[in-house]
Design a protein around this nucleic acid. Structure first.
Lengths: 216, 216
DNA sequence: GTTGAAATTAGTACGAA
DNA sequence: TTCGTACTAATTTCAAC
């Protein structure tokens, strides 16, 4: 299956919980998403109890979340090593302009690709692949990717360890749990001084790539 | 919740379906994982029918997959934009040697981080964050990350579009669906010739990082 | 590893607050 | 909208094969 997913669209500041047309997500919706993140197989009845609403209401909201697309699907999280794909690599790809469509089409035929995003910066896209061994990475890059005309160049790095993986992030996660720094500073007076110049770098999009997204 | 997950451990070639101690995954287990990837809320009864085994068998196998850790958890996939986090960014971090432990500890306190992996190449780690607006990225990097002693430098890129996102990849995905290339070549005789030198780059680990994984 | 039948739970429909 | 309840359908459990 090929899942096309939502994009960012450089929206500057969007009111949280209400984007575009669709469902207005309130605190209870958010709570439901919090619970479902950890236990996607919980029954709606149990979910209702966890967030403190009636069963009927929970069914209505649950359906609404799915129908609206706020919840895209339910899935499992597996141990890739146990599944026989012990090697994970990131491939940064430079794509030839005007050939994005072809690049996307070829991507869909690569089952070892778990994730692909178009980025700003010196490369155009980042691909994450899971394969059985390092040889498979080499084959994938040298053989499959290199033979796509749309691919100008690639740079591959290996993932040595996945430190953190959350199913998704929610605005309500905020900085509520585990904190013990200064007595909570407002956003305005946060320490932001003495950071060595050039330590933090932001890399914008390469020229002529803004228009090259979905339909390049 | 902070999820510590499995690592790669530079295992060269591992027999698919059997890694370390644990459950031996056969074709039926794989089929179950295929189904659960698309529908994590399917009933075990329906799952049994889909993979062609009896219910009791399905229950046994389902339990085994969970107990063994092959399935880590069930979760949902959401539309980040609808949830109010329309901006996704990748932050590549250079970590000061011997300070990985601190870096990991600080990571756990950053709820906007969805994913963090330690990589080979010119940077040491890649962090993926989801936030409400671009200002939040700036705050995150300049304010929070920059103030961690373990962080030597960062480089930030924005994700313009997420082209593909699969819950996970399975060995059985192979190149079965949608194919029309050459009549299937063995791994040995695949075309691998005429690729311009330097077009494809592999970047190894920086010096002194091999030992700096979990317990640096 | 399979089938079938009991116990439990889930999902739906509806009226009332 | 939300809640509570009653009704129907499905799932899970358990036992015997």
């Amino acid at each position: 299956m090929t899942s096309e997913i939502s994009r960012n669209a450089g929206s500057g500041s969007v009111p949280p919980g209400r984007i575009g047309i669709g469902l207005e997500l309130d605190d209870i919706h958010m709570k439901m998403l919090e619970v479902l993140r950890e236990n996607g197989r919980i029954s709606v009845a149990a979910l209702a109890e966890r967030v403190g609403i009636s069963r009927a209401n929970a069914y209505t909201r649950f359906e609404a979340l799915r129908a609206d697309g706020a919840i895209k699907r339910f899935t499992a999280e597996i141990d890739h090593v146990r599944a026989g794909l012990g090697i994970t690599a990131l491939i940064f790809v430079t794509v030839r302009q005007q050939m994005w469509k072809q690049f996307r089409a070829e991507l869909a035929r690569m089952p070892e690709v778990e994730y692909c995003a178009i980025t700003t910066g010196q490369h155009d896209a980042m691909i994450q692949v899971r394969v059985a061994d390092v040889a498979a990475v080499h084959t994938m890059v040298t053989d499959r990717l290199a033979n796509i005309p749309a691919v100008k160049a690639t740079e591959t790095v290996f993932i040595l360890d996945e430190v953190l993986k959350r199913p998704y992030v929610l605005p309500s996660d905020a900085r509520a749990p585990a904190r013990r720094r200064s007595p909570e500073l407002g956003p305005a007076q946060k320490t932001q001084g003495d950071v060595p110049l050039g330590k933090m770098r932001f890399v914008g999009a390469a020229e002529g790539r803004a228009a090259l997204q979905k339909d390049g």
